[in-house]
Write a protein that binds this DNA or RNA. Structure first.
Length: 296
DNA sequence: ACCCAGGTGAGGG
DNA sequence: CCCTCACCTGGG
């Protein structure tokens, strides 16, 4: 089937947004995008093209500043890029943990983005037992097939399909998006959200424990995905998703290489890092991947 | 031809 | 509760 590209690649003629630059304030663009929190971006000539909720964001980084082009207001861009606020003070606090102090030189500059809750929920359900290139393939195809086209010229893209749209998607379309056995989860999840059981507003307003329980009640959402949504989509800083990378990192850095259950790692991390747990998770995740990449 | 990948849910101990 | 296992599918 003919698949429309998720983000327009054709020669741009029009551009609706504005250009401006912001002080980098410790943010490492590459690490921020590649530490696994976000799927809807690509690189074009050293510029990151990110689909962030209602707009496309083009960001290029130099030594001191981020150069942004977007029709998103600068203040929204800032809120998106620095979801947790200034990065350096957070890293200073993280470095009080001696293990993280040793990790940080390799991972400094990670920012946790303020992403859309629904897109985060749906894409992380797709992410289960999956790999990143394929997750992006599936997400891009779903957007191209079901998402609302938006913007023009360079700013053109397909939005992530809303819950009702996804819930009503034909079987074949999900198969073409290669979501595999996750298709029924995804459809049932979309149905639940479309019916307001729970509403995204409920999820966003709920305190950590209640939001967590509500997420775990949704199809295709287990502990790992729930924690990802709490962290990346709902702004809960104590969330600590335990994937295989983080599990290995914590076992080797904190438990002398001894095996621990994911559940115990989560408890350990929440106790140890408190409201910095989510950020610590990103650094540990990134570190584990670097170490493996350079070791192989 | 396998095997793996940012897990989940069903089923049995 | 805890543990084990099957599972769509594209890319090594």
């Amino acid at each position: 089937m003919a698949v429309r590209p998720p983000i327009a690649d054709h020669e741009a003629t029009t551009f609706e947004g504005t250009s401006f630059s912001l002080p980098r304030r410790g943010l490492d663009l590459r690490r921020t995008l590649e530490c696994g929190q976000v799927f809807r971006y690509r690189w074009a000539d050293g510029t990151a093209v990110i689909v962030a909720g209602a707009a496309v964001l083009r960001v290029r980084s130099d030594r001191w500043r981020l150069h942004v082009r977007s029709r998103m207001p600068a203040e929204h861009v800032e809120r998106y890029l620095w979801g947790w606020g200034p990065i350096r003070p957070l890293e200073r606090d993280l470095a009080r943990d001696p293990v993280l102090a040793a990790v940080l030189p390799h991972t400094r500059g990670i920012s946790i983005l303020g992403q859309d809750p629904w897109e985060t929920l749906a894409t992380f359900v797709i992410s289960q037992n999956n790999n990143i290139p394929k997750i992006r393939l599936s997400v891009d195809r779903l957007c191209a097939a079901l998402g609302e086209p938006s913007g023009t010229g360079q700013d053109a893209y397909f939005a992530f399909p809303d819950p009702a749209r996804l819930a009503d998607a034909p079987e074949r379309l999900l198969r073409d998006a290669a979501v595999g056995y996750r298709a029924p989860y995804l459809r049932a999840l979309a149905r639940r959200i479309a019916e307001g059981d729970p509403t995204l507003e409920d999820l966003a307003a709920a305190p950590f424990d209640r939001a967590r329980a509500a997420l775990l009640d949704l199809p295709g959402v287990g502990e790992k995905v729930a924690e990802c949504v709490l962290l990346f989509g709902l702004g809960h800083r104590q969330a600590f998703p335990v994937d295989v990378w983080v599990q290995r990192a914590v076992e080797s850095l904190y438990f002398g290489g001894h095996r621990r259950r994911p559940r115990d790692i989560q408890t350990f991390a929440r106790d140890r890092f408190g409201p910095l747990a989510g950020l610590a998770q990103q650094h540990l995740f990134h570190f584990a991947r670097i170490v493996r990449r350079s070791a192989v």
